[in-house]
Nucleic acid binder design. Sequence first.
DNA 1: TTAGGGTTAG
Length: 713
Amino acid sequence: MNRRCDRLDKNGILSLIFVCKCCCLRIRTSIQHHQSNDQADILIPAVCSKLVVDQKFLIRAITEKKPYVSREKKFKEAIDTLCQQKRLKEAIQILDLLDRSRTCPTAAIYSALLQLCLQQRALEDGRKVHAHFKVSGFVPGIFISNRLLDLYSKCESLADARKLFDEMTERDLCSWNTMISGYAKAGQLEEARLLFEGVPGKDNFSWSTMISAYVRHDQPHEALELYRRMQKEEKLQCNKFTVSSALAASAAVPCLKLGKEIHGHIMRTGLASDAVVWSALSDMYGKCGSVEEARHVFDKMLDRDIVAWTTMVGRYFESGRRKEGFELFSELLRSGIRPNGFTFAGILNACSADAAEDTGKQVHAYMTRIGFDPFSFAASALVHMYSKCGNIDSARRVFEGMPQPDLVSWTSMISGYAQNGQPEEAIRYFELLLRSGTKPDHIAFVGVLSACTHAGLVDKGLEYFHSINEIHGLKHTADHYACIIDLLSRRGRFQEAEGIIDKMPMKPDRFLWASLLGGCRIHGKLRLAKRAAEALFEIEPENAATYVTLANIYATAGMWDEVAKVRKIMDNRGVVKKPGSSWIKIKRDVHVFLVGDKSHPKTKEIYEFLEKLSKRIKEEGYVPDTNFVLHDVEEEQKEQNLSHHSEKLAVAFGVISTPPGTLIKVFKNLRTCVDCHTAIKFMSKIVGREIIVRDSNRFHHFKDGSCSCGDFW
DNA sequence: TTAGGGTTAG
């Protein structure tokens, strides 16, 4: 064998290793004797990795009679190899072998093991290593203790960390700082602060950890105060960490003045070369409402890393400057810098908000091309985007490709199905979620409750509602109450609804009252409508929708005096009804329509077609529903108003501008009205098209004369 | 051996 190795070149030996595991040890010895150093450097790790393929080889490697190295060294080598390959479980098992061979692990062995535990956040394995100290009589030094401390605090096992910390006979700044950062991460700010105050000779690290802790837990003023104290008390030279945490604090307050002060400091001290400091700076300007300044800083950055790009793109979206956001994203793609999960999540989220499925699809294609992590939140952002765009089938395809869907993706699916008129599927997914072992949170419950509402499954909904605290031990939120009131009042179960409202532990919010008011509109419940509206007037007197709904309820009951009164209050308070508008994208152009809009170049064709269509749908049985018109005008006039609602104009334009059979997708800024809903159902049948209307609340898929929402919206 | 910036669900 030795001679054979001698004759073989590097590749030959490598192939030999893979063919014959048993020879590994001998091969290794041979390499040591016969190969040049640089070749041995490559070959030895390869042999070692083969050596520890299983326990048998390991034992043989270690207990071999004529070892060419010491036992400790062999153990260390084996553990190093396992750690390199991230095979934690097997590495931990070596501790048993050590015991059996009565070998005392060295600090280096423990250190390597703990590092791997840290990487994999393996708390239990870390505990095993810790427990092994006692067995082997090992007394850890500061280095090992700190590592263990870090592991415990990163795994949020603070009791363990604190016990160890208190037991340590010697501590350095790192021990203190690690402990503080553990408390800070877990949100135990008071504990962190107490410890922080006790740190002898605080360094930059201590200060920046504490400042960031306050920022992260929504106490930006405390963070700023601490930064000021640091400047006053300590003679410390600010470093990139303290500066960026102080910038984050100014961004969170927000305090542009201090931010600018720090900016000046950065320019004077040369901290500007750090990518994170630059990013924090542009982040600060963005959050202090100065996107222009943020862009200015961004443009001046020498090394713009992906985080800087992501931040800047996000800044544009956040401030409603979507076009510039998308433009900068295209620039990023051209720059050759590879976007990451955060970038994709940000851009996909913007697509979801706009229901810009075309862009979202392009991003998806790009992600697929460069490869994305199906475990990441970029994947869940994709699910969210498709479901928000009403393309629940694509959402499901992405979802099914995820090895382990996270709660966000589950919730996106549940809400997506609920919003797109498939409440049974929503409920099925919720049940699957329960079985998957992922714990639902309050938002997942909002999803399933709204599904029950749309399916009209009152009792099922009540069952879920009660299970929230009875089975899942979660507290009911105001949202849950709003959902359950929506569920009950849509079905006319007002007595139960009122009973719940009067007994609920928190003040009903605007969503709850708005749901109740909506239910009252369906069932013509005057007294309760008044109660809901009055509550809403108090919470949000500027919201025109409340006045309009209340007036409509009175109008339906023929109580025109009351209608007039509501209108008068509305005028007195200066509340203006938000104009309804609908838009449709044909090829690359977006066409926007208002009520009775005549500004479109194709107005003549649109109105003529709509006229023809109105006749046809009336023949099919459509009766204009004039109840829901605010003004007390003549019937014929009402009909006129109705037939030129923005969504009807957009649908009509869609039909005449696209080839037969094309899907029509219309967006509306407000909820669609009852009459349009009925009319579009008929239209879908007459023109033989699938029509999707996304209103401010949900998706309506119209097909063959019916709508996916089952007339609940 | 300790740390800072970006992201998703109604």
